[in-house]
Amino acid sequence: MKADYKFLFLLIVPVVSWASDSSLEAFEQLKRMYAAPQTLNYQGTFVYYHDGKIETMKIFHSVGIEGEKERLYHLNGSAREIVREQNLVTCILPDNKSVMVNKNQGNQNILFALPENIEALKSSYRFILGKDDRIAGRLSKTVLVRPKDNYRYGRKLWIDTDTGLLLSSALLNENNRTIELIMFTEISVVDKIPAFLLKPTVSGKEFTWHNELANDGVKDNDNGVTNWVVKNMPNGFHSTKHYLRHVSTEPTVEHIVLSDGLASVSVYVERLATQNKKFIGTSYMGAVNVYGTVVNDHQVTVVGEVPKSTVKLIASSVQYVENR
């Protein structure tokens, strides 16, 4: 009888230790993935799949004394491109004859570097090291990010074994189907990216410039005074930022950003001006779902790259609270 228990014990231990090794190794790969672009100069071509369409883009990425600089442009159709440097994102859209300058918002580089972040992520996702694979002719490690519930999407990442660069990344819906995909077809690490390759091909002189930096209508609402609260959100989500947006011609919009570490959801609240402005129900664009509802004569719109049920849950829990 005792012998039976021993056997059981022997069976369980290897499985458990293998699992934690897999998860640890997965985080190691993710750290490498975030570190790689901060030290490497590279150029490559990738495809972007969304909504049943495939796009092809070219990227040049360079690291200098001024930090990272990156130029991304479309290889098909009109030469839409984006140049990212330090805190600035310049977006050139030739078919609209417009150039946009924006603040560079996301710096996710520390996401997997801090233990508390990792612990928080683990409450919502499983991180699993998958089978080795090959992308763009290079060996890659794969990391599966599996949500623990149906309130968020999964991901699969292919990380270059040699350099740590992200070679491919897929966003997976509840049925494990790819709803968005980026995949390099060719990538090379180089000593230096010549400066001219990081400059946009158009001067933009004849274009209309839209500069969000010059617009002081958007301000952080750091003191957090608001009457709007999200009462109920899926486990792991928390409110990260709160903004008040005001453009002279438009009503003020409150903007609350929620995040579970990987997925983000925006809640927009705006006073209803006219009867026909109401939007109640769902909508989507590729991986991004939208849910609209009306609370206290305000239009509440929730937008996020999460399943429909999540935006709906969050939207229906938005409440107006007096005297906060």
Binding site: L72, R80, V89, G106, L262, S266
Partner: peptide
């Protein structure tokens, strides 16, 4: 604000 594991994804979406 669409964080994402893939730094390039939000920009690929735009263009």
């Amino acid at each position: 604000y669409a964080s994402g594991v893939s730094g390039v994804l939000p920009y690929a979406r735009i263009i």
